[in-house]
Design a protein around this nucleic acid. Sequence first.
DNA 1: AAATTCTCCTGAAGGC
DNA 2: TGCCTTCAGGAGAATT
Length: 270
Amino acid sequence: MPELPEVETTRRGIEPHICGKIVDEVIVRQPQLRWPVPSLLADRLVGNAILSVNRRAKYLLIAIDGGTMIMHLGMSGSLRMVTADTPPGKHDHVDICFQESVLRFHDPRRFGAVLWVDGDPMGHKLLQQLGPEPLSGAFDGEYLHRLARGRKSAVKTFLMNGHVVVGVGNIYANEALFQAGIHPKTAAGKISINRYERLVEAVKAVLTEAIKQGGTTLRDFTREDGKPGYFAQQLNVYGRGGANCLVCGGVIKEIRLGQRSTFYCSNCQN
DNA sequence: AAATTCTCCTGAAGGC
DNA sequence: TGCCTTCAGGAGAATT
């Protein structure tokens, strides 16, 4: 599933192929995504050049003169550059066509989105109340500690809250908490600033490493779905319920926390 | 305000 | 082999 590193990898992958190019045609085969694909999308895009490809949280922001197309990959979405004569397959819902290539949005589960916003994209409702980027300087131990004050929710849920920090999905939340030695159920408000500093470092380390691995995804970008690849080998706890901890040999526990699979080592994480 | 639950969807996995 | 059931999961919306 696309985590922040994969979205960033996607951004870097498509940017050089579409920046400066003029949109010839927009084909929407299935408008029923997370939200309906706006019918005015084609009108706004066709005839205009792509000015930039940016990312905020897991949203891709593709700007043209007058506004921005917002794309989200949801759980199963992907974007690929294909040639104009590539026949669409199942779940290829949207094509943004250029003279010699097509940006193709593919999403079996349709949790993704293709939206449009006039003017400043940050004015869009979805982008207005987001927390800081996890790899930015604004995301530090002091910030997390201050925000957590008085909160009773589990630290893992807290960390996955997009108002707190964006882009930390279930897999990385599990991994970062393991790396920081923090039990995922600990009340967010009861964690010391020192431990939050350690957690922030862990989040940054895990994401940075994954982005580095994302380079592999980038090379395979136009290929058919190479999804399991890049991080599966180095997961310490995610998906390893019942297996032995790679650090202490204890058994990895699996619980549900806020309807999410949660994994931890009860020996390493307290 | 914060916390919890619900919701969208399909493919994979498990049961029989 | 095949049909049926269960379930994961990003994150906004609805609800408590």
